[in-house]
Design a binder for these strands. Sequence first.
RNA 1: CAAGUAGACAAGGUGGUCGCCGGUUUUGUCUGUUCUAAAAACAGAUAAAACGGGAGGAAAGUCCGAGCUCCACAGGACACAGUGCUCUGUAACGCAGAGUCCCGGUGACGGGAAGGAAAGUGCAACAGAAAAUAUACCGUCCUGAAUUAUAUUUGGGAUAAGGGUGAAAUGGCGGGGUCACAGCGACUUAAUGUAAGAGCCCACCGCUUCGGUGGCGACAUCGAAGGCCUGGCAAACCCCACUGGGAGAAAGGCUAAAUAGGGAGGAAUGAAGCGGUCCGCUUCGCUAGUACCUCUGGGUAAGCCGUUUGACCUUGCUGGCAACAGAGAGGCUAGAUAAAUGAUCACCCACGACAAAACUCGGCUUACGGUCUACUUAAAAA
RNA 2: CGGGGUGUAGCGCAGCUUGGCUAGCGCGCUUGAAUGGGGUUCAAGAGGUCGUGGGUUCAAAUCCCGCCACCCCGA
Length: 116
Amino acid sequence: MNYHFTKSEHLTKKKEFERVFNEGKVIKNEFVVLYVIRNDFSHSRIGLVVSKKVGNAVRRNRAKRLLREVYRLNKHLLTVHVDIIAIPRQPFTTDLKLSDIEEGFRKLLLKMNGDF
RNA sequence: CAAGUAGACAAGGUGGUCGCCGGUUUUGUCUGUUCUAAAAACAGAUAAAACGGGAGGAAAGUCCGAGCUCCACAGGACACAGUGCUCUGUAACGCAGAGUCCCGGUGACGGGAAGGAAAGUGCAACAGAAAAUAUACCGUCCUGAAUUAUAUUUGGGAUAAGGGUGAAAUGGCGGGGUCACAGCGACUUAAUGUAAGAGCCCACCGCUUCGGUGGCGACAUCGAAGGCCUGGCAAACCCCACUGGGAGAAAGGCUAAAUAGGGAGGAAUGAAGCGGUCCGCUUCGCUAGUACCUCUGGGUAAGCCGUUUGACCUUGCUGGCAACAGAGAGGCUAGAUAAAUGAUCACCCACGACAAAACUCGGCUUACGGUCUACUUAAAAA
RNA sequence: CGGGGUGUAGCGCAGCUUGGCUAGCGCGCUUGAAUGGGGUUCAAGAGGUCGUGGGUUCAAAUCCCGCCACCCCGA
C-alpha cells in the first residue's frame, strides 16, 4: 500500500484550480466541501483552500495538515483518477482530531468511485 | 503570608509506526557533450538507500532605522516630512547606556515631543471692569450747564489704598510700620479719635543679571546686585537647529515562449530617465512619417539566479560604571513557493499560553501561560 | 509588499477645519392629543464609555502617541 504524498499529487497552478472550480462537481459533508473532476493522469491530485475565517496562520496550517493527512491515509480507496479541491466548512475547528473526520472523508471517497 | 517593583530563564520530554521539505554521499535508469562506436569521464533529470538538518521570543503588527537592487556611485535650491535636555554607543535610528531637570509613588521604582513666547500672526468658552492692554469702564470726590426743587441727565477735573470673577489678573509668603505725605470705606465725635488697610522697610523662597567653584556637557552650588521692568498656550501657525533623493524582492538579472502589431503623440521653446517644483546631469532624437522614439491598449506570464556566510552564533580574555568595542579560538544553524517541520500510540513532568519564516539584519510596539532571583512596603487589616 | 479611509443614540449621518456654546439631524421607540378604531398629523419625552488605553491643556468627540475592529485601492 502506497502512503507517500509527493508534490506531483498537489494541485499548484492557478489554471488547474480554476478548471476544478468551474467544471467540477460538489460533494460535501458537515466538515468539508469537495470540488471534484476527472483528470488524465495516472494518479489523483488534491488542492486545499482555507479562508481567513478559519483563524490565524497557525489554525489555518493545522486545518490544511489534517486534510492532507486524511487524504494521504485513505487515497488508496479511490479507484478513479480525479482532481479534488478541499475546503473546510464552518464547524471545522482546530480542536478536531484525525479520527473525528476520517470516517466521513472515507464515505466521500467511496461515493466518487461510483460517480466518476 | 499578602501587595508590589525590577530583571533573568526555558518555550514540554523520551521511544515506536506512517509521512513532508531541502542538503551530502552511494547506487540504478534516462538524456546531452567529448568519441567512428563502445568503455570511461563530465553535466543535467529522475528513483531508491544511508547519514545528519528543519519556525519564534515575539516568526505578529508593519511603527522607525539600515544593508541590498534599479533609477546619475544621488548633485544644488525651494517645498514637504520627521526629530528636538546632555554626553556616549552604533552601520544607522525616532533605539540603547550613563546622567541632568521636572512630575508621580510610603517605597523599590516609574514617566516625560524637556529648544524658542523681547521675530511675527493667532487663541483663551462662561464669569469678570479688564485675558495682555495699564489705558479705558464702573464707583467715589470736586466743579460747570440744563431742569422749579429732592433728584436726574450731561461736560470738565481729581482719585489708581474700592470693583473678590476666573484655570490664569504684573511673583509668593511672613514680620514691621504709616492715619496732617496723599487718602476710600467702617465705628465714633461738637471738634476729634479708634481699628483694619496699600504704597514703604526687612527676612526667606522664586525670577533676572553679574561673578566664583565643580562638571566634557545638560546642570549643580556659593556670593553679590536688581524691586521684578517682557503672564499662559508652540502635541496653534510659526522660528531655530539637525536629519531625510525615489522606488521596492512582484526590487533586479538570465533563459525559454510570445512579439499580432490596434489607437494617440513627437520636432530645438523636443521626448524620456525624474513619482512635489525648478535647476543641473544622462540617453535618444532634429525638416518627415514607411523607419525611429514615447504613451496607451492587447498577447505571453514557464523555469533558474537573487536566496542564505551574516553589522552571524558560542566561548573565555582585555578596555569601559554601562550600552558597547577589540583581538583570539571554535562553529555553520530553515530556505519553502497553492507554499515543507505533521499525524498517531505509549509513558513521564502534571495538561503546555500567545502564536508560525517568505530578501536580510538592528530596534520599538502589541499578545501571552509558567519558573527563578533581587529589592520595597507608609497607612489599614491579620 | 505598499497606500488610503471609517468607528458618534436601535439604524443612517453631521459636528473634528480654528478645542469651550446644550453633542445635533432624519428614520425608528415611548407617552399624550385628535378618530368609533387604524394610518396621517400635532405635542412632549427617553435613549450617548463619541471604538479603546495614555498624553498635552484650565478644558479633548475635536490636538498628539500606542492599540483594536472593519472597509477600500495598487503591484
